[in-house]
Design a protein around this nucleic acid. Structure first.
Lengths: 172, 172
DNA sequence: GAGAATAGTGAGTGGAGACTCATTTTGGTA
DNA sequence: TACCAAAATGAGTCTCCACTCACTATTCTC
């Protein structure tokens, strides 16, 4: 791959992440091109459809989340993801399936595995009740991320909301 | 108001509720007109903008929910709303603020009041822990409704997810 | 440095969907 | 029934946006 192509690809991804984080997946590709300092055609050369671009960002963000999962305990990572939600509109909206058609079984699967590992550790340590299973943890995680994003929660509200969920996980 | 106007207004509302419930607020006004058996212009005569139409439906659905709140206890109503979420894509998506600009302070306020009343009763009966406050209950409600809607939960997953939240509410 | 291959450009195309309005139809009234 | 104001109609307008492509510019290779 030529040097300028590589540079532009990275610029486009960065711009897209920022734009979609700010306006959600409904933001126009034009805006992404503008912020990347690149012509619209260049964006489409690298990512043939808008969905391809969104998928690329999603993959990036999910990979990053999986890494971060390795550096925290179960509850810290849960809270971290919720905090990120408001900043990273894209992930949440896309996980929510807002009219976008994207297949990311791998990336999502890896995140689920990472959360599964944290859950096992927490249950071994006795901080999460044994009957709690991964599916409902993922369901809660997705729910609260969406709630935090769309609800515009302040820090206190987020803390109080998570407190209820964490209490439920500890003693279910 | 003339008889045919009244009839058509009702038909449009019914059609809109069905269409938006099925496809979400992104469904086209054309589709609503088609299902109502009415020309597109008629829809716009009754509801000058698409947002007006959405607001009218929202008001209707919220009013109905407030009524239903009077007939259930706290936990039953919570579960009821979540179950409805999947069926009534509109409410959730709109409460989530999916690109639509709608002001419904009254209707939403009434729902919040109704939930507040159920919460007081539940805390008086000792089934919800005293430190739990209305804001986080509303936050949890909104979150789980969105999660249920977008996640395509089956009955078992919904039950298990609610079980965690209910446990947290009981002993926070 | 010349040539070939790769990449960038941006005006243009096509389609979707919200909304309009000149015309026709209908319902109520005298 | 005759009239007319209210209502319905739907082809047409307008705007936005994803995506294309003929042409130009840049890299890389020898």
């Amino acid at each position: 791959m030529r040097a300028d192509a590589q540079r532009n690809r990275a610029r486009i991804l960065d711009a897209a992440e920022a734009v979609f984080a700010e306006f959600g997946p409904r933001a126009s590709t034009e805006e992404v091109a503008r912020r990347a300092g690149v012509a619209i055609g260049t964006v489409f050369r690298h990512f043939p459809t808008k969905d391809d671009l969104l998928a690329a960002i999603m993959k990036r963000l999910l990979t990053q989340l999986v890494e971060e999962a390795g550096q925290r305990d179960f509850f810290a990572f849960f809270a971290h993801m919720v905090t990120q939600a408001a900043a990273k509109k894209t992930v949440v909206d896309l996980l929510a399936g807002s009219g976008v058609n994207i297949q990311l079984p791998d990336a999502v699967g890896h995140l689920e595995e990472a959360v599964g590992r944290l859950l096992e550790q927490a249950q071994a340590a006795g901080t999460v009740a044994p009957p709690v299973r991964l599916p409902e943890v993922m369901a809660l995680l997705a729910s609260v991320c969406q709630g935090a994003l769309h609800g515009g929660w302040d820090e206190q509200l987020q803390d109080r909301t998570l407190a209820v969920i964490f209490a439920g996980l500890k003693r279910n």
